[in-house]
Design a protein around this nucleic acid. Sequence first.
DNA 1: CTGCAGTGAGACATTGACGTCTCATTCGGG
DNA 2: CCCGAATGAGACGTCAATGTCTCACTGCAG
Lengths: 183, 183
Amino acid sequence: MAVDREQVLTQAAALLARRATTSMDEIARAAGISRATLHRHFAGRDALIRALEQHGIERFTQAMDAARLDDGPACDALRRLITEAEQVAGVLAFLFTENQLFEGAEINAGWARLDARLHALFRRGQEQGEFRIDLSAAWLTEAFYGLIGAGAWSVHEGRVARNDLNHSIAELLLGGIRRSMEK
Amino acid sequence: MAVDREQVLTQAAALLARRATTSMDEIARAAGISRATLHRHFAGRDALIRALEQHGIERFTQAMDAARLDDGPACDALRRLITEAEQVAGVLAFLFTENQLFEGAEINAGWARLDARLHALFRRGQEQGEFRIDLSAAWLTEAFYGLIGAGAWSVHEGRVARNDLNHSIAELLLGGIRRSMEK
DNA sequence: CTGCAGTGAGACATTGACGTCTCATTCGGG
DNA sequence: CCCGAATGAGACGTCAATGTCTCACTGCAG
């Protein structure tokens, strides 16, 4: 009975990430509820988007907390983050592709905090000699989002197996495409 | 006098990539023309989107041709492609993020052909031992688009200098984040 | 100068989504 | 079993964007 708010938001993110003009009716049907019920839980389209942003920020914050970004080698921290972020990939992809939403500067603050934490991880990795320094931390941050989004899309389209996603993102990000000559 | 169709499409891609719900009026004003004139050149919103797809496919095809993907080491071919694709990054980012567009199967064919060429490049790199084989060519293809899109966005937001974009994408894709121990 | 092609500005009806409402139904707890 | 809360289905009115149209203006070629 009680509508699963989490489920609705996840569905909405999946649809909106793929087509930003998805109607409330489509979102409702995808979530298995009626448009009326959707409106009962979210005052309107704007409210739904806002909730989606909030939800995404909260989930990603949890993922960062769980990954303990400040502990141990930056490489390992990044791997942990990818593992944690994988479950939020759909919502993250939406937030990343629809960045125009952040024009109202309120939510911007929450997102900026996440950005800063990720940025700090890459900087730490550079300072401690684990990461290369010819790629700016800002770029690595953006690239991280881009790969998470591409990964979510690839799984959704069936081009990448969900089980491989973690490894695919982490290895590409850390090691790149080129075949390593060592060992 | 004569409206610069190229200019209009480029502007439209930039706006639509950032906010897919951008109105025809906003697009027209961004392109420096009136809404009436915009409608004179593109029958409607759908027609504009279609033209954008077509334009993006053509430009990316040209980029691939210019990069000579089949010549020499795959690494070098990939670098050339990134250099060429950089100029189309805005349109590519739009096409990649709004993948929903490809439901009408006509354009799908043109896009699929580009996908196949890119896929083939990665496969060639793997078969010739340049690229690692634990990352599927399909994933590398998607990741390529993701990084191009993230790069275009980063430049647009001022987080990455345009001059660095080429190097940033190519190096991250080929070598990854981790600092190389060799040499 | 004249004519014309292209454009800007704006009016207009249409369309589709949105938000609100009502009413019947269903599910679950007491 | 019964009642209430939650839901589904649908009917509206509203509104913004769209697409089409007209009319006046501009710039340029002849």
